[in-house]
Nucleic acid binder design. Structure first.
Lengths: 144, 144
DNA sequence: ATATCTATAAAGAACTATTCTCATTAAAGA
DNA sequence: TCTTTAATGAGAATAGTTCTTTATAGATAT
């Protein structure tokens, strides 16, 4: 399936840069690729420990950072909370975050390219990246 | 001047909600209102200590959080660094951040309202707030 | 003006997320 | 298989932030 394909790509990239392929790393990458819910490090750790009980939290942190540097996962920064990660869409994209249940959704946004272009033109900045987060209350939480 | 006016407004709001007006608080608010460069807590602390040397860092944190809750300053969340604050435009607005010199600019952005409205319609979320940051290299840094 | 009451400030301890250290283990190429 | 060297694991360290305790400052009533 699609996860296997990306896993192979990431492993190839690791090999190519002389990083070692370890069972822990594979487990961490798989967890990140399979999860739909933008997990935090702690959540990945819990998942990985099911099959590799001796894995340490530091290893998860280090691997997550490595993957971030390789551009294979996206970090979603949370002030005053733990960061969360998106292993499915590793490029910058907007998020819609429910402030009640912490659910994160990836909405379709049309206007971002245009906005970025206008901004660059108006300010003289070269824009490399962005972090666009919308906060609100999801449909389910609005009912309660 | 304009700073005095906003200071009075904030003080009135504090009084109205039975928060006390203390010299430390006034100093912290003034620092936030006067600064143009989106200072962090540590920077505010340094500034306030000039006139009130006994002020503690915790006091600055508490006051900053209080002001944030009152909606009088805007928090700009930074992953892996310290948060910074905008005392001049307390409502959510986009930032353009130079990744070389850390300069922060408040650009004009037209499309955000529209984007937010489309998003709410498409997802069913009630959108309350946003955090929109663009990262790049400012004109000055591009030359070096 | 004074006494009393109450919320705050101050200081540092505590907490949480993350990174570092280093001895030990194990991956990958010879 | 052997060797080299990077990765792991466990806990200590760190940084940013929040909590706790206690004396004090500000408000209130007299």
């Amino acid at each position: 399936m699609i996860v296997q394909k990306r896993l192979d790509e990431i492993l190839a990239k690791l090999r190519q840069r002389d990083f070692r392929i370890t069972p822990q790393r594979i487990a961490i990458i798989k967890t990140l690729l399979q999860s739909e819910d933008h997990p935090g490090v702690e959540q990945v750790y819990a998942e990985v420990k099911v099959n590799f009980p001796t894995t340490s939290l530091a290893t998860v942190y280090k691997t997550v950072n490595l993957l971030k540097e390789l551009g294979e996962i996206l970090e979603i920064g949370f002030t005053g909370g733990c960061n969360r990660y998106d292993g499915n869409k590793p490029y910058p994209h907007p998020h819609l975050i429910c402030t009640r249940c912490s659910k994160i959704v990836d909405p379709e946004v049309r206007l971002l390219e245009q906005m970025s272009a206008e901004l660059a033109k108006a300010t003289g900045y070269r824009i490399d990246s962005h972090q666009v987060e919308f906060f609100g209350v999801c449909a389910a939480c609005q009912k309660s």
